[in-house]
């Protein structure tokens, strides 16, 4: 290959080409998938851990009295209750942590500046990563729910509840994402790993009631629970799968409206704060430094 050939190629080929944003998002998603696939150990760990969690809560349910579960309106099986919580836990993590992880990883790889020097908006990368984590979480869902059913869970799975569940999960991600955006901003600002996202996952699991119904919390803690979008997402998804009802049920409708309100208020605030942090990082020259 001589320089002449290269020069001819570059001389002849167009310079003002375009790539659609959808293609870019897919490319970004595939890039994350390829990178993650290099860490097979952690994927296997993640799957094993989650499956064992299902088994553990299955065994734990043997000694749990369903009274409080029933009082909260979730039927009579603690296993059903916990199963749904575990099945969607990855979506919670995805919505809260994926953006922070994007920034963190790009900083860690040293690719953040490289990406920011292209005309493509960073949002595309966010979307790609989010989509990757969404599908990754979906695989968990697809494995966990049938496992639960084999172990004797009585959750109602039919075309309507599945559609309702997917809609509600999408709403969950949308409503939780503003918190994820803020968390990403914090990572950009403080550059201390992703501990905030990690803590957020715990806080959400506790207050959102992944493992116990929030009605057993004392009122001041329950008050905090009601402030988190996750509480409403979990409530709606559980209620739908346990009773086999769809979006049109008033309790689910109520939860969905609350989630939409969260999203409507959350995005403008989160994006504004994130932009502010991003611009000040550009001013201080701290974007790519790990």
């Amino acid at each position: 290959m001589t320089v002449d050939e290269i020069l001819t190629l570059f001389k002849e080929s167009p310079t003002d080409t375009k790539v659609s944003n959808v293609r870019k998002v897919i490319a970004a998603m595939l890039r994350r998938a390829k990178i993650r696939f290099n860490y097979k150990t952690w994927m296997i760990f993640d799957f094993a851990n989650t499956l064992f969690m299902v088994f553990t809560y299955f065994l734990l349910s043997f000694i749990i009295l369903p009274e409080d579960i029933a009082k909260a309106g979730y039927g009579y099986s603690y296993f059903d209750f916990a199963l749904v919580g575990i099945a969607i836990s990855h979506f919670i993590t995805a919505s809260l942590r994926s953006l922070a992880l994007t920034i963190r990883l790009e900083q860690f790889y040293g690719t953040l500046e490289s990406v920011l020097s292209t005309p493509t908006d960073f949002v595309i990368l966010f979307m790609g990563d989010l989509l990757y984590y969404f599908f990754y979480s979906l695989i968990f869902l697809i494995i966990i729910l049938p496992t639960g059913i084999i172990l004797g869970s009585k959750i109602v799975i039919n075309i309507w509840t599945v559609l309702t569940m997917l809609t509600l999960i999408t709403l969950l991600v949308i409503a939780n994402l503003p918190i994820g955006i803020l968390s990403a901003g914090m990572v950009l600002k403080f550059k201390q790993g992703d501990p905030i996202g990690w803590a957020l996952t715990w806080i959400n699991q506790f207050f959102g009631g992944t493992f116990f119904p929030i009605i057993i919390l004392p009122s001041f803690l329950r008050f905090m629970s009601l402030g988190l979008p996750l509480t409403y997402s979990l409530d709606a998804i559980r209620y739908s799968l346990i009773w086999g009802v769809t979006l049109l049920h008033e309790r689910i409708l109520y939860d969905s409206i609350v989630l939409i309100i969260y999203a409507l208020i959350g995005y403008p605030i989160a994006i504004k704060i994130f932009r502010y942090i991003y611009n000040s990082a550009r001013k201080e020259g701290k974007i790519g430094i790990y």
Partner: peptide, 19 residues
């Protein structure tokens, strides 16, 4: 520390449900 305290709290409340 938050991680430790919160995970303890989760089982504290699960304990309410245990027979």
């Amino acid at each position: 520390i938050i991680d430790i305290v919160l995970s303890a709290l989760i089982y504290y409340y699960v304990g309410f449900l245990v027979s």
